[in-house]
Write a protein that binds this DNA or RNA. Sequence first.
DNA 1: TTGTATGCGTTATCAG
DNA 2: CTGATAACGCATACAA
Lengths: 344, 344
Amino acid sequence: MANVTIKDIAKMCNVGVSTVSRTLNGHPDVNPETRKQILEAVEKMHYVPNNSARNLGRSENDAIALLVKGVSNTLFSPMIGIIEEEAKERGYDTVLHSVGFYEDELDVARELVKEKRLRGIIFLGGFSFHSEEKLNELDVPFVLATTGYVTERFNRGTYSSVSVDDEAEARKMTEYLIKMGHHRIAILGPSLKDNSSVGGLRLLGYKSALVSNGFDYNEKLIIPMDRDTVDYSMENGYAAMTRFLKEGGKCSAVFAISDTLAIGAERAIHDLGMRTPADIAVAGFDGIEAGRFMIPSITTIRQPVEDMAESAADILFNVIEKTGDHRHETFPGELIERESTKLR
Amino acid sequence: MANVTIKDIAKMCNVGVSTVSRTLNGHPDVNPETRKQILEAVEKMHYVPNNSARNLGRSENDAIALLVKGVSNTLFSPMIGIIEEEAKERGYDTVLHSVGFYEDELDVARELVKEKRLRGIIFLGGFSFHSEEKLNELDVPFVLATTGYVTERFNRGTYSSVSVDDEAEARKMTEYLIKMGHHRIAILGPSLKDNSSVGGLRLLGYKSALVSNGFDYNEKLIIPMDRDTVDYSMENGYAAMTRFLKEGGKCSAVFAISDTLAIGAERAIHDLGMRTPADIAVAGFDGIEAGRFMIPSITTIRQPVEDMAESAADILFNVIEKTGDHRHETFPGELIERESTKLR
DNA sequence: TTGTATGCGTTATCAG
DNA sequence: CTGATAACGCATACAA
């Protein structure tokens, strides 16, 4: 009663295991009567196929994996559903797998590919530095999504990516703040030494906007994330902004490299008796849901996550089915002007 | 080069496969020299073990699964890390698996148990109705976390649960609002016909508080979620609350059955030219991060998710290792009074 | 349409 | 300490 296998079902029905296997896998060449009988036995015995055995015995599996680093990142939430749906339409299953903070996403991917006989991978988040050699060890097609703008440093021919141009978008936002009349614009979130992560790229855009508009770049206006708080959390934005202001930092606007940080910053400003946007304007990045509902609502660069997700799936399946090549697609972010920067 | 197996490694090193298997699994009875040689070959060949084969061949696996229904629910985020950590300390791996909206969590669980030879399961979210028979088909210990208060209707002896008493907590919040002087308290989120889900339970508490305080229960003050929007999203709270108010609904306070809904409601009130809490007070449920940072911040019932996660793991491992029995633990929620209900 | 036999990559048993 | 070899549960080619 404990562990029903395909053999038990076969015996019950006086048929061979292969017949059971066929009906279970929806092969057409099974006598309807036999099929019915088998299905009934399956039901009655509560038979559940063993996926490990299944994966082992099978040569290929029409499935891809979606490897998410940072499942709690709400930016990814809408993408997951879209990719799963897109896969289903193409006749693929998708296994959603979370990559731990300290895990190497490529190692996880390789393991999963072997285990599940996957046809391809989509990475969501993570994926900072990997040697070309390591990239090549993953022998199924893969596409990187929202993992920082993919520059030339990588071997771009062996995989795909979809992303926004973090640097350009950050420049856009900074220039917008400048046009709004701000002269002292702080940036919240980036670490000083790290120019390949999204944070680093957004910092680059910020700098470049300042410089090309005749402002000097002032390190005092770079507010790094708080060390003692979870990265990119609202609380982190709150802690970092609070410290900045309490230590006498001055600015007329703060550009946070994520909406979560912006939300924390807005509250920090409020708690210190100042007003947004009158005293300090606040801008974010990403376009997550919460930013719309804050009071004041948060001006942001919205990443077109739906399009990105669709495109990621599209590219991947085309490469898998050899109807297309790897490519690197950059999506335009949308500057959404909201209350946190608008002086009414 | 493509698919290195344990046999290839064995050949390379002139040893048997079992020796390779042993070193890979950290068995002590392997000559250090042989071990070293094997490890080098593994490295060199980029060998990755096939987990499917591994799971098949192995009799038991020190692993549990964490089945999450609704990965994007930020309430769960902190719990995941805690459970994984707790498992690791006990020497167990934990596989995090997301259950799709339309999937049956018990089916998924049974499949996974077979596939991975799991020792136990923790369910996060979901899990509304299941026949006793179905419950018994899952033949490893499991514990339900934050999935609605487990009443007597279930066969409580065969599994565990950790939760808050949704009904009592909702009553607590409603009574708090009554004490704050509110006479017309709306409730946002529950559906009218459904008294076993968390929404239904919280509605029950709301009613009971009203009645026992001499108010009559008014169906017009029940604001169901919006049908065209994602359940429990901020946008849903916004849409539902907006409609209620536009249709002439009146209330001096609204108790949302989740913080996300409360956040949307707060914004809806604001957009219609009213103020929180002066015109309409807002209260939520859960205690998610965002509620703290809203302006005004959201009064809520905080679920002690950290304690609940720890306890869930604790119970599960005790049952697995037969050092404890199944039990149903109810945690007290904490009413956190914040700006959204406080008239300064 | 159906059954038999072989292989998938490991683990584990059991002699050596 | 080590190496054959038999499971593990299923898919599949092949034969019937």
